[in-house]
Nucleic acid binder design. Structure first.
Length: 401
DNA sequence: AGGTATTCACATGAAACTATTCTCTGAGTTAGG
DNA sequence: TAACTCAGAGAATAGTTTCATGTGAATACCTGT
């Protein structure tokens, strides 16, 4: 694009009306005024937490539900209202929201407590102190005066997966160390069977109350989408059947409302970019493709070198149609290491890396037994053919091949 | 033929190690009184 | 003597290695017919 055309491109862009009235309504962190189809859960939550306003410690709560079923949204909704009232009535209530999946923020015991301490204005170093030391600091700080603490731990299953369940035991035990203040925990989990392999002591004290968020069905998703679309888009932009299709796609994926909204937003963006002014069904397919491609490219881009090398080996090792096994990949990988001057990892480690790549959904790696010929993983590529070349390019670039 | 014992090629687990980043502590050093 | 510097000990964390144990089913090997 030449200089002149570029200028007129931007000018044209400005002249064009946007399809969007308020794009924020379709973005992940948007908080709508009401949460449809979750009245029941909100009511239950409110009921459990309400004693906080009388300075009585609310029960610990455990919340289950698949991704995009409105867990976080509802909890925050209730928490916001609660804290508003508490502030009005001058009740010493504090609510923390921590997402345990956030890398380098709250994904270990130390960091969790450190993060909470920071919210209280205590300077805590990122490392160097023993964990019980910062526990002590935290306890001292919150126990200075009477205080009710509500700790919302989002994606708590990830935390336990990484660090074990004693962390939860410690958290629940904190109450016995606190003289004046009290602490309640709200755990949010995507994993429905998460508590099954939890220490029974932890389990019973943590899930005094349980709230389940069932997935939305297609009809409910439609209503939600309509509500948001009304805020987000200008009138007459949405074509026939668009909402329905978005809802159907998301319903297929265990009723993930977040995904449905994302789909709608990206469709809108694609339409805008192609200089049209109406969203029709075909754009939803394109949007889904784009979302998926972006997700993959993003994952691939952010992997560490050894993961990239392993992935490169998987994409480049061909056995003309025959199934591919861990051993094959490891051999290829070792050669690739020699070529790129990287010190090869042990097979043990590469095996783990393959398992992790499988978890990320880039490859399929199924453990199979070949009988007399051993037990291994059968590896296949799990991304659409059309994105493979692009991924290989990224890998080559990242590895200087 | 039917049954069971082996065996392969890794998977899976646990522990220990390496390297980096950061704190704390106490010994040694410095500079001002 | 107070303030400063700096090395050494300890922590947390991420990524790995080492060592040990587990495992599903195709084959090898029996056994009795």
């Amino acid at each position: 694009m030449g200089k002149k055309e570029l200028k007129s491109f931007f000018e044209d862009y400005l002249k064009k009306d946007s399809l969007f009235k308020n794009k924020k309504a379709l973005q992940g962190n948007y908080t709508p005024k009401s949460v449809p189809y979750r009245e029941e859960q909100i009511e239950v939550l409110a009921g459990i937490l309400a004693p906080a306003l009388r300075m009585e410690k609310p029960s610990n709560i455990f919340i289950y539900g698949k991704t995009g079923s409105g867990k976080t949204l509802c909890v925050n909704h209730v928490a916001d209202n609660l804290i508003k009232i508490a502030n009005e009535k001058k009740i010493p209530l504090k609510i923390f929201y921590l997402n345990c999946k956030m890398k380098r923020v709250a994904d270990t015991e130390y960091r969790l407590v450190a993060q909470m301490s920071r919210e209280f204005g205590i300077e805590v170093p990122a490392t160097g102190l023993p964990t019980d030391e910062i526990y002590k600091m935290f306890v001292n700080e919150i126990d200075k005066e009477r205080l009710l603490l509500l700790l919302i731990l989002d994606e708590i299953d990830q935390l336990v997966l990484k660090t074990g369940d004693e962390i939860l035991y410690n958290m629940t035990r904190l109450n016995s160390e606190l003289k004046k203040s009290e602490l309640s925990i709200i755990g949010i989990s995507n994993d429905l069977v998460f508590t099954d392999n939890l220490d029974p002591r932890v389990k019973s004290s943590l899930s005094e109350e349980e709230v389940v968020f069932p997935p939305y069905d297609a009809i409910q998703l439609q209503k939600i989408l309509k509500q948001r679309a009304k805020i987000a888009f200008k009138d007459g932009v949405l074509g026939e059947g668009v909402i329905e299709k978005c809802a159907a796609y998301a319903a297929r994926e265990h009723g993930d409302a977040r995904r449905a909204l994302e789909l709608l937003r990206v469709s809108g963006e694609l339409v805008e970019r192609s200089n049209q002014n109406k969203i029709n069904e075909s754009f939803i397919d394109k949007a889904e493709e784009k979302l998926e491609r972006d997700r993959i490219l993003d994952i691939v881009n952010t992997q560490p070198k050894q993961f990239k090398l392993t992935l490169y080996s998987i994409f480049n090792y061909t056995n003309n149609g025959a199934p591919i096994f861990t051993g094959d990949i490891y051999d290829f990988y070792k050669e690739a290491c020699v070529k790129t001057g990287v010190k090869p990892l042990t097979q043990r480690r590469v095996s783990d890396i393959i398992a992790e790549l499988d978890m990320l959904g880039i490859i399929n790696a199924k453990v199979i037994s070949k009988g007399r010929y051993g037990r291994t993983r059968e590896i296949g590529i799990a991304i659409p053919q059309s994105t493979v070349p692009k991924v290989v390019d990224i890998l080559k670039e990242g590895l200087n091949i």
